[in-house]
Design a protein around this nucleic acid. Structure first.
Lengths: 330, 330
DNA sequence: CTGAAAGCGCTTACAG
DNA sequence: CTGAAAGCGCTTACAG
């Protein structure tokens, strides 16, 4: 920077102001400095800038499973929005419970980032408290949060959209193929989606057959295994509401293997609209993790600017009817 | 840090040395300082540290499509390895060609990171040159590179593994369902996999029917469309080698829709072993992007330590035979 | 509109 | 093994 200042014949203070677009520099001087900086291929040192100023120009994101479609899409949305604002994204994966304890225990983010975005990790009260004392702006993405601004879908409502679709088709023996969090701590989405399932059934006056409510591990494999359990039960469902598209895909695989046709004998609906849902002709409730990540990014920017955060409400979801649902055979 | 030094009754220089595990501090002093720092919940400011020392403690990763399984897996592997070494990962997505030009044109990474990992983006000579002059350690992951250390699979060989499997089963009319890069610049993997395809055919003395060589856009949709083209040709293939699992899945969908059974009428093999490959019983050549990311991370660490980089050779791939391949019907 | 000077919180030769 | 001091490259009141 001294170099630029010397050549421009001004002080480093002026260069600093010109480069940051701050007021108090004449247009003539500013453009001269900008041109010079460009010429010299000069970039400000974020270290020095962060040390003297207050902000680091970085926002951290903690994410549960970056390799999963949902999480990586949220992160891409975040990155796009933050990059446009000149901020960098530091990614921290939290793979297992031990790692999670480690992260929330040490919170290695003080002075390392201006804000933290927690993606798809419902926080315990203790974790929230730790974070609140960490001195950074916190935004939750993919989960609802009491203490911090959050952007997420309404899982109860999304589940109702799915189950109502089955009910409208005439189904009554509807199974819930839920998942359990690997973490064993209550996972918000699972509870909310079950609540939505029950609420839809209740509204329609249809009793829930508890033998048709199964919670199994997640992913396609979990869905396949959970479905095997349902198929080995006494009375079969005519329709299944699965926690996610991946679970649904696994379930469908199990059904076909066992000789059941979808949707002729059993209908399937889930939540996500994963890229493969269209390919597999899966009826699902679409959510938009990329857009959600962008919204979370905008929330971070607003919070950093100290703006009043407008309550964005729940992020929208929408039923997409494809080929895995049909009226019951009987 | 002054706070810790004051309470420990030593200078900040000693605290700094103790905290970094550098030599030149008595064990007694060191442990006292460490305990104190722990007590006070003290963490060094990376800004200040970076400003006085040389390194930033950060490595940047540029990635083409973070939402894709392959790329996000590589990034997770990288993150795991780098985090274990106390380094942070800054993620930069490069979505479209314009964005790519912008990135390589401005290279906003000088002083912002100690190293740069380029994931799945084959670089042009000009881009390589720009990077070489940027003053950061560069590692390529997922592509081979002349100028920088790189860790990648041998695409030619992987393709041969796939096609040789088909040849061994007795297939001769084998189609290549390749993809074209959205970027329109030559994409290494596509060329190498085509080369592997041709080499395997040549070795087996089987002529390539050029009407069975199709390059279409990527993803499941691209695979479906490309397959439709193949199916509308004069002579049908008895087997298809697809660029990736997603392309293969799309292709299979097209075949089933057109009334062809897999593998009875047409066999399908591809490259990846995507999580859904097992679910869909797809025969494929497995690659391990998570492990590849880890290896890239280790390469970065070694380079940062100034170590001689051992030539790791190609990252291994392995044929996984499942249910989409069988001997030809005739 | 512009500059001189202090200070951000560390690390690193240089002494001892 | 330990400390005093300079310096890393910026930003920010404070003057002018």
């Amino acid at each position: 920077m001294v170099d630029v200042a010397l050549r421009a014949g001004v002080s480093t203070a002026t260069v600093s102001r010109a480069l940051r677009g701050v007021e108090g520099v004449s247009d003539e001087t500013r453009s001269r400095i900008l041109a010079l900086a460009e010429d010299l291929d000069y970039v400000v040192s974020p270290e020095a800038s962060g040390l003297s100023g207050r902000a680091t120009g970085r926002v951290a994101v903690v994410v549960h499973d970056l390799a999963a479609w949902y999480c990586s899409s949220v992160v891409v949305g975040l990155e796009n929005e933050l990059r446009a604002a000149g901020l960098e994204l530091v990614v921290r994966c939290v793979d297992d419970p031990a790692d999670r304890v480690e992260f929330f225990g040490t919170l290695p983010l003080r002075r390392k980032a201006d804000a933290l975005v927690v993606v798809a990790i419902p926080m315990s009260p203790e974790e929230q408290e730790r974070l609140a004392g960490a001195g950074v702006t916190v935004v939750a993405a993919g989960t609802h949060d009491q203490h911090f601004p959050s952007v997420a879908i309404d899982d109860v409502n999304a589940a109702q959209q799915a189950v109502n679709h089955l009910l409208r088709l005439g189904h009554r023996r509807i199974a819930l193929l839920n998942t359990v969090a690997a973490d064993d701590r209550a996972w918000q989405a699972q509870m909310d989606r079950e609540e939505g399932f029950r609420r839809a059934m209740r509204s329609a006056g249809v009793p829930v057959d508890e033998t048709l409510v199964v919670s199994w591990s997640g992913g396609a494999r979990g869905g396949a295994e959970g479905m095997d359990r349902l198929l080995s039960g006494e009375r079969l469902p005519t329709a299944v509401f699965a926690f996610s598209d991946e679970v649904a895909l696994g379930a469908i695989r199990s059904m076909r293997r066992s000789g059941f046709s979808v949707p002729q004998q059993i209908s399937v609906v889930s939540i996500d609209d994963h890229p493969l849902a269209e390919l597999t002709d899966l009826t699902t409730v679409r959510q938009d993790p990329l857009g959600l990540g962008r919204a979370a990014g905008r929330t971070v920017l607003a919070a950093l600017r100290g703006e009043e955060l407008p309550d964005v409400g729940a992020f929208p979801t929408r039923l997409v009817i494809r080929g895995t649902t049909a009226p019951p055979a009987d």
